[in-house]
Simulated assay, not measured.
Amino acid sequence: MRRTLILALGTALSTAALALALPAPAAPAAKTDADPTVTPPGWKVPKTAFGQPDISGYWSNATMTPLTRNAKLTDKLVLSATEAKGLEKAFADALAAADAPTDEKKGPGKVTDKDSPEAKLVAIRPDFAAAGGDVGGYNTFWIDPGAHMMEVNGEYRSSILTTANGLPPARKPGAAPAFGRYRDNYDSYESRSLGERCIMGFGRNSTPPMLANGYYNNDYYIIQTPDAVAIQVELIHDTRIVRLKGGHRPDDVRPYMGDSIGHWEGNTLVVETTNFPQSDNFMGSWKHLKVTEWFTRVSPTRINYRFQVEDPDTWDKPWGGEYDFAPLKGIVYEYACHEGNYALPSILAGARRKEQEADAAKAKAGGE
């Protein structure tokens, strides 16, 4: 039996665990090849047969770099090569150790055990804590979060967000909660999350802003035509259509991925998305949410992706982040999600059973 990640949300990690997670590495060897994130001298952006800058093909945004900065590791957006390589090694070592066979006498490791591989892994990526808890955890054999820190224009990044502290800004008083409470709502399958229902990918892979989910299937297929750009998302098989002609729809119809329109500014595809549904909100924002994205081919092997989020009801000013897409070695295959077909009936049946038991307990108490 492989070791599983039993990760409890909100676990506090000690300074000792962090130190164990981040051994000081030797200085990395100098690169012998040109940095793929930096535009080669004399290189020109390729064009499609109809004259658009060519961003088509198979791409991936898998990365070790999380959306938000881990303040326990660094307060800087840009890491040195030594720091980045040290994190990569510690991450790889912790993943490998967490995937070792479980000691039947000791049982699986926990993040509360400061010397466990799980603690070292979560010390580097606290968001991995969300992989465990109620669903029992992911075995690390099944995750493919990427093996490298994100590199943008030759700089190693500690977070995808480019705000001063690498975190979302403060929310306005009265703004909707950043995260919904769907886990506590068992009234209907319609009240469960879109990811759980196999309708949309979890971790916001598809709906703008498009973000790496940190676990697996962070791959895309971009197709261009004179009138539209289609972005096929591996998880959960969604395709977003960006219309290049015409404006936003005038009604209040809200497609799952919002309403995306785009235009070219030089070598950059600029995409603006509005009309988000509440079920696919971003950190609680949806009704007046607007996301602007910039896709720029910056080298033979990179597309720079920037995004800006704004909602006057939620934040005082726009904010956002940046990363680079890298080529996918292969193609995007069908992601056949069936978990909802099996899990949802059990989830709802379990909720009805608990309600029946609660009613029976009340009736018994009232009769005594």
Rank of each mutant, 00 (worst) to 15 (best):
T162N: 02
E190R: 15
S193H: 12
T140D: 03
N185R: 15
G136C: 00
G132I: 09
A123W: 01
G132R: 08
Y156V: 05
V152W: 01
N153A: 10
L167S: 11
I124A: 07
G201K: 05
T162A: 04
E196D: 05
A147H: 05
L194Q: 11
E155Y: 01
V135N: 14
A129P: 02
A178V: 09
V135Y: 12
A164E: 06
F202L: 13
A129C: 02
A176I: 07
F202C: 11
A170T: 13
W142E: 05
A176S: 13
P177L: 01
P126K: 00
S206Y: 00
G195K: 03
A170N: 13
S193D: 10
K172A: 07
G174F: 03
R125C: 03
A129T: 06
N165Y: 08
F128S: 09
Y182F: 11
G203S: 09
F179G: 02
M200R: 09
F179V: 05
G133W: 02
S188W: 08
N205D: 13
P169A: 10
D187L: 04
Y186P: 00
G166E: 07
R125Q: 11
E190Q: 14
R192V: 08
P169M: 03
F128E: 01
F202N: 12
C198Q: 08
G180L: 09
S158D: 11
F141N: 01
R192M: 13
N139Q: 12
N139K: 15
L161R: 07
N185F: 06
Y156W: 15
S158M: 04
M149G: 00
K172W: 00
F179N: 07
S193L: 07
P208C: 08
P145H: 07
P126E: 00
P126V: 01
G137T: 05
P168M: 02
G146L: 08
D127H: 13
G136P: 02
W142Q: 04
T140F: 14
N153T: 03
A147Q: 14
P126H: 00
P169L: 03
M200T: 15
H148N: 08
S188D: 10
N165E: 11
A164H: 02
